[in-house]
Design a protein around this nucleic acid. Structure first.
Lengths: 210, 210
DNA sequence: AATATCTTGCACAGCGTTGTGCAAGATAAG
DNA sequence: CTTATCTTGCACAACGCTGTGCAAGATATT
């Protein structure tokens, strides 16, 4: 199906560009207002609303593609995180997460909380699983709190990260501050006291994360 | 204007009942779907959509009244919280908060996060202020973390409480578990380690909060 | 029983949006 | 240059919702 059997001509290259421009515009606009209209998105991309339907079947299709690719990008960035200590692993995940999401905070919240979170769930599944595994492992070795079941704790860690995102969306926060906050809140959630957390961060060089 | 000067008759008493029924129905329905239509709300209240406009000028009016009264109820429940130790005060606030909001969790999230949060801000202001004051006081006396500015920390504590609400909305959680979680997460956010927090809770009888 | 008050149903306008059909125009590929 | 591909503008239908006007009906109050 890729190279058609008939004598069809190759698709125009600018079409692909426009498609990309639409996604990029959507990324930007939806990050300001998750309910931005197609009209607004198309205009921002330098196209007409009508043309959008030449690239995507409908609004949902655009959103789906945007969110799915975003979720995969985020999940992909976590793939390289491997560390023997499960707590360090968690902190590294938090750190990378922030870096990936920092410039799309509002849309990230929308992607995970909004009505379309169904479309990102699949791509984020491995990430959630590795968080859960790290927590279970850390509980087993007595490194973190055991008064909350692992599943629940995993959700709460995720919620803590989202809470920082939200806070950063409402009250200006530079990238560096957000980065450390995400880690601090994750550690706090799993049971670390604040001095303990600070010690842990310096001990493991997490404050100078690349 | 209360008792009209003309020979007007007193308003019918069932009208007030219907108005109350509308608010109650709205409270229930909006707790399931914050975008529930007036049609749905009116029907649930045993009235027609048309009648709603006999009691409220428009949709926003209904919402405003509902949210404002809810916010005041919540804020009012915190008024009685006075304790010399600011950390205990924070924990008590968290505890009472849960009890007030437990049966309206989804709508509470909507009221604080949604587009109508403007209408609840005023009523919740004293509550937010007392959280901020408690945190500042506790920081001054070295009881809690000082690596995060008081304002920011206050926001994060609020976010932590909301995170528990959200978690409870998505993954079933009985009232008791939610109650302790809210306190635990608040303490975690202000810098307590999990054992320290547990100790603190038993020491102050917070696990048996009325 | 008289009457003001409240409810109802229906019709209608308005809103902002999405999705389509179609014909004409612009443009990259061959 | 020719042609298939892409874009555009306009018109139109549809959707679900809010808000109103009006006349008729039900009901509490007096």
């Amino acid at each position: 199906m890729v190279s058609s059997s008939s004598t069809a001509r190759a698709p125009r290259r600018d079409a692909a560009d426009n498609r990309a421009a639409l996604l990029e515009a959507a990324r930007t606009l939806l990050n300001q207002d998750p309910d931005a209209s197609l009209e607004a998105i198309a205009t921002a991309a330098g196209l007409s609303r009508r043309s959008v339907y030449g690239h995507f079947a409908n609004r949902d299709d655009l959103l789906r593609e945007l969110l799915a690719s975003g979720a995969e990008r985020v999940a992909g960035a976590m793939a390289g995180v491997t560390h023997p200590d499960p707590v360090v692993r968690l902190a590294l995940i938090a750190s990378h997460l922030w870096q990936e999401v920092e410039d799309v905070r509002v849309m990230a919240l929308f992607a995970v909380r909004g009505p379309l979170r169904v479309h990102t769930a699949a791509a984020l599944e491995p990430l959630r699983t590795s968080v859960f595994r790290a927590i279970r492992e850390a509980q087993a070795s007595g490194q973190i709190r055991t008064d909350i079941p692992a599943r629940r704790l995993a959700h709460l860690v995720e919620a803590a990260a989202l809470a920082v995102l939200e806070e950063s969306a409402e009250h200006p926060m530079d990238a560096h501050e957000g980065h450390s906050l995400v880690i601090l809140m994750a550690l706090a959630t799993i049971g670390f006291g604040w001095r303990e957390a600070a010690q842990f961060i310096t001990d493991n060089g997490l404050d100078a994360a690349s």
